[in-house]
């Protein structure tokens, strides 16, 4: 790979990326296409029967207009069902969950700013908040990684393992711990609490949240007969889960990225030729915006105390 020209290497990487996306598209098309078409036909049939039932007084244009209003309201998280006495989307717990979904870039989309001022503030808030949250993640990682590496070190000394084996064991252990505590356990809780979703859907939701994809298609919503206090408690729980889970996920990813096998795989595409110290660190840590890679400490260039 080192003998390849840089442009050829980038081209190869681009091709691999596009191929992966194309493959995903083909599989998803095959899996989701038929059910989607079936659902589309069902909706069309429902529309047709509704129109036929009320043909005497309901012109099609009027129904189209109503549908437009319904979907516009829903797109911004305003429920079209029931009356206006419903709980607000923008009470403090909901707003907190929304801000957390911005700063973690999860962005479920279950609610979004409606006003122009809200949209403008959202842009400014994210622009200032994302670097700050990345700085926090960097600091937390810097403190927590040594703590999490201690059990691995102890096992390595006790069993007299080679460094590579110890690293693999540590990464596997941490990965398993994160998967159990932040993926499986919350999924079981969600499955137990929310009666209308399967265990698979609960796992899918947890994975979507912790990978910051946040499709938001399985978020618990208002109007499910829940007491407001319980609903708000659930939102606080989700907020805590999101923040702690993402940190745990980053720690696990960081540990895995240190493995020689992973480094070798990344190096396969790495630029050839001499590299400076700054180049040793990737532009991205774990995410597209991750500046969380802790930069090396500055060398002492002069005495900092009076002579």
């Amino acid at each position: 790979m080192g003998s390849l020209k840089p442009w050829a290497r980038y081209l190869l990487l681009l091709m691999a990326h596009l191929l992966a996306m194309g493959l995903g598209a083909v599989v998803l098309q095959a899996l989701e296409g038929p059910p989607a078409r079936h659902l589309q036909a069902q909706v069309q049939a429902e529309l047709a029967s509704f129109q036929a039932e009320h043909r005497a007084c309901l012109p099609p244009e009027a129904l189209e207009e109503l549908l437009g209003a319904v979907l516009r309201a829903q797109a911004h998280g305003v429920s079209s069902l029931g009356n206006s006495s419903e709980t607000s989307n923008w009470d403090l717990p909901s707003a907190l969950l929304f801000t957390a979904s911005i700063l973690t870039t999860t962005g479920y989309g279950h609610m979004a700013p409606l006003s122009s001022g809200g949209k403008a503030f959202c842009v400014v808030y994210a622009a200032l908040g994302l670097p700050a949250s990345l700085a926090l993640v960097a600091a937390l990682r810097h403190c927590l990684l040594p703590v999490f590496s201690r059990p691995g070190d102890w096992v390595a000394i006790r069993w007299q393992l080679a460094p590579a084996q110890a690293a693999l064991l540590q990464a596997a252990g941490l990965g398993l711990l994160v998967a159990c505590v932040f993926m499986l356990l919350p999924a079981l809780v969600l499955w137990g609490v929310q009666g209308d979703c399967s265990l698979l859907e609960a796992i899918y939701f947890c994975f979507g949240s912790l990978s910051t994809i946040g499709l938001g298609d399985l978020l618990p919503a208002h109007g499910r007969g829940l007491h407001p206090a319980i609903y708000h408690l659930g939102q606080f729980a989700l907020l805590g889960y999101l923040l702690l889970g993402l940190l745990a996920m980053l720690l696990a990813v960081e540990t895995f990225s240190e493995l020689p096998q992973v480094r070798a795989m990344v190096k396969f595409f790495g630029p050839s030729g001499s590299r400076t110290d700054e180049d040793q660190d990737g532009i991205l840590g774990q995410d597209e915006l991750a500046l969380s890679t802790v930069l090396p400490d500055a060398p002492v260039l002069g005495p900092t105390t009076p002579a």
């Binding site: 998280g77 305003v78 923008w90 403090l92 911005i102 809200g118």
Partner: peptide
């Protein structure tokens, strides 16, 4: 952020809901 969003959006949401 939560407080400001609440101040900015609560009214807009109520307006949107009432309008619908």
């Amino acid at each position: 952020g939560a407080t400001i969003f609440q101040l900015l959006e609560k009214q807009a949401e109520a307006q949107s809901r009432d309008q619908f």
